[in-house]
C-alpha cells in the first residue's frame, strides 16, 4: 500500500534521510522509531507528498507520488502533523467542518460526530480550539486526519500528550482502522506503544536500521542468556552446566545461564541437564525489551544487530 524505495532527503549538504526502503501493507501498522532528528517527520512529509525526496520514490497503492498525482493521493491519505495545527479562533465543529469541505465530503459532519464521540469530544464541539487542552487538541487533530476515511494513515506522535485512557481509545481506533484495511505508519518515541500496537517496528536514524516484528527484533539483539526451569531445585545443576557456560546461577527452579553462543551451546546444555537427571519444564532465551533493542540499534547502528 505504502512503498518507499531508496527514499533520500538532503537539506543542503546535510542528509536527513538516507536510502530508506520499506513498505506498509493494507491492514498493517508500522511504528517508526528513532531519536530526535532521526528523519521521522521528514519521512512522513515525503510520504504525504509535502516535500520532495532528493532521490527515491514513494508510491501509494502503486501510484507514484508526483506533482500530477499529489492532490489525488492526498485525498487518500490522513496525515496527523507533529503539532495539532488547529485554527484557534474557530470552534471544534468549525475546524472539522472546514476540513470536510476541503476533502469534498458530503457527510463529513456525521463522520466527525461519530469520531468525536469515540474520542469523548462531543461535549466540546462548540469550544474554540484555543480553549482546548493539549490532549483535546491532539484528539481533534486525530479526528481531522480520519475524517475522510483514508486508506493510508501517517501519524506523527499520535498519542503525544494524551492521558492513558484516551491513549487506549486511540489505540483501539487505530486497531479498528487496521482491521478495515488501512495502512498505518506512525512515528513515536513511546516504545511500549510501538510494541503494543505495531505489527512491525522500523528503527530510523537517518538510515533504516531495522524493520521487523517486535519479537524478531528482540531475538536479533541477544543478551546471550538462557533460562532453564527445572522441576526440582536448580541449585543441584549449576555445576553440571558450569563447564559449558560463562556464568551459571540458580534461583529456585530457575537456572540462569550465560552462553557465548546460545544457538550452538543450548542443545549441549539441555543434553547435560537431562543426563544429570534434571526434569526440564522450559528452556527459553532471555529476550531483551524493545527498549534494549532500540538503544542497541541507535547506539551502534547496524552493528547493534547480531546476524
Amino acid at each position: 500500500m505504502i512503498a518507499a524505495a531508496g527514499l533520500t532527503r538532503q537539506f543542503g549538504a546535510r542528509v536527513v534521510v538516507d536510502r530508506v526502503t520499506f513498505t506498509v501493507a493494507r491492514g498493517e501498522i508500522v511504528a517508526l522509531l528513532g531519536p530526535n532528528g532521526a528523519g521521522k517527520t521528514t519521512t512522513l512529509r515525503m510520504l504525504a507528498g509535502l516535500i520532495r525526496p532528493t532521490a527515491g520514490t514513494v508510491t501509494i497503492d502503486g501510484v507514484p507520488m508526483a506533482a500530477s498525482t499529489g492532490s489525488a493521493l492526498r485525498r487518500r491519505i490522513g496525515f496527523l502533523t507533529e503539532t495539532p495545527g488547529l485554527w484557534d479562533r474557530l470552534t471544534v465543529r468549525e475546524n472539522l467542518s472546514i476540513y470536510s469541505d476541503l476533502y469534498g465530503l458530503d457527510r463529513g459532519g456525521e463522520r466527525a460526530a461519530a469520531l468525536l464521540d469515540t474520542l469523548g469530544l462531543t461535549p466540546h464541539l462548540e469550544l474554540r480550539a484555543a480553549e482546548l487542552s493539549k490532549g483535546m487538541r491532539q484528539k481533534v487533530a486525530l479526528t481531522r486526519a480520519l475524517l475522510h476515511d483514508p486508506d493510508v494513515l501517517l501519524l506523527d506522535e499520535p498519542t503525544s500528550g494524551l492521558d492513558p485512557e484516551v491513549t487506549h481509545g486511540v489505540r483501539a481506533l487505530l486497531a479498528h482502522r487496521r482491521a478495515n484495511g488501512c495502512a498505518i505508519l506512525l512515528s513515536t518515541h513511546n516504545l511500549a506503544e510501538a510494541e503494543r500496537i505495531a505489527d512491525r517496528v522500523a528503527v530510523l536514524q537517518e538510515r533504516l536500521l531495522a524493520l521487523d516484528t517486535p519479537d524478531v527484533l528482540r531475538r536479533r539483539v541477544r543478551s546471550g542468556r538462557i533460562e532453564v526451569r527445572v522441576h526440582d531445585a536448580a541449585e543441584r545443576y549449576v555445576n553440571v552446566v558450569a563447564p559449558l557456560a560463562t556464568r551459571a546461577t540458580a534461583d529456585g527452579p530457575l537456572l540462569q545461564i550465560e552462553l557465548q553462543d546460545p544457538d550452538l551451546r543450548t542443545p549441549a546444555v539441555v543434553e547435560a541437564l537431562v543426563a544429570a537427571g534434571a526434569r526440564i519444564v522450559e528452556v527459553r532465551p532471555e529476550l531483551p525489551g524493545l527498549e534494549d533493542v532500540y538503544l542497541a540499534l541507535v547506539a551502534h547502528g547496524e552493528r547493534g544487530l547480531v546476524p
Binding site: L50, R74, I77, F79, T81, G85, W87, Y99, L102, R144
Partner: peptide, 14 residues
Amino acid sequence: QARTLEPLLATPIA
C-alpha cells in the same frame, strides 16, 4: 507561524 499550514497543505487543495 500558527502551525496550521502543514495540515492544510496535506489536504487535496491545489
